[in-house]
Nucleic acid binder design. Structure first.
Lengths: 145, 145
DNA sequence: TCAAGATTTAGAATAATTCTAAATTATGTC
DNA sequence: GACATAATTTAGAATTATTCTAAATCTTGA
């Protein structure tokens, strides 16, 4: 860890270390980029956004960074449709409402404790991914007409 | 619809029709293949299995058939990891427990009515996809040692 | 029987992700 | 502080997953 990072002594780099990863400027940038906008970008979209502040970053590195961030629970990985995986900056317990018509994603906080669900004997739960598919208000309105 | 299908008068072909699709032998085969084994195969795996009874079927047709079956609610589409989408023959209300170590998928019936979840204003729910990630009993045991 | 539309096919094209090997960077040891 | 070791990054190739295309085939209803 260099002087700047030590001074910052930030939680970000501690979280990486705890997960067995090193701090790198690339991971910081990718993390910043995901946090900057409260949406659900694909790896490709994150790659494009990260290139704006770090033009020399490569594709593989973005995937590597995202994998590290997901493992350290700094970012969530979300599978909503066939095709590209998305990533989510919201680490609070929530589920995703996905509009099958326009692709919009809505985060909704989960009030109830999901751990009450029955589970296979011996299964050690890491996390829940709850996706609700349907039509957003706007698209539901359109499809009626 | 030909004579054989008329005679069978099966629900399968009715379900396709209701969804705006025609009955085709390819759709029947793909459906049979998915139903035959209670697992969670990818499109590629389904393609391979279907070729056994219908060697001339093409890749694109398997995707086309699966799309039709999913739209008619005869088969479920499941996103559990990055990479290939899986398909599921179990149409009962259930969630998926996914072992991040070995990739095994366990179906668990959902007892509670999920519709109590809060939702964005005006959102028209089609269906819920609940995936629980973690380690299956076997892998949890291994990782402790 | 014919026209229109749906479906299938092979294969190409595209998109998403992973792999590879070399270069670079950081860490701990003496 | 120099060195060995291991982690990380990089460009680009390779692989995997999915979609597209255009022609051929099949089905349906008039």
């Amino acid at each position: 860890m260099n002087a700047v990072e030590k001074k910052l002594g930030n939680e970000f780099s501690e979280r990486l270390n705890t997960g067995g990863f090193r701090f790198t400027p690339q991971r910081q940038h990718v993390y910043d980029v995901v946090m900057q906008k409260r949406d659900h970008p694909t790896a490709e979209e994150i790659f494009i956004r990260t290139k704006r502040t770090m033009p020399e970053i490569s594709h593989a590195t973005v995937y590597n960074c995202l994998d590290a961030l997901v493992k350290c629970r700094l970012v969530r990985q979300v599978q909503l449709e066939r095709g590209a995986t998305r990533f989510c900056p919201n680490m609070a317990e929530h589920c995703h409402y996905f509009c099958d018509a326009c692709g919009e994603v809505f985060d909704v906080a989960l009030p109830t404790d999901s751990t009450i669900m029955p589970r296979p004997k011996g299964f050690k739960v890491d996390h829940y991914d709850i996706a609700v598919h349907g039509l957003c208000a706007e698209c539901a309105g359109k499809s009626k007409k």
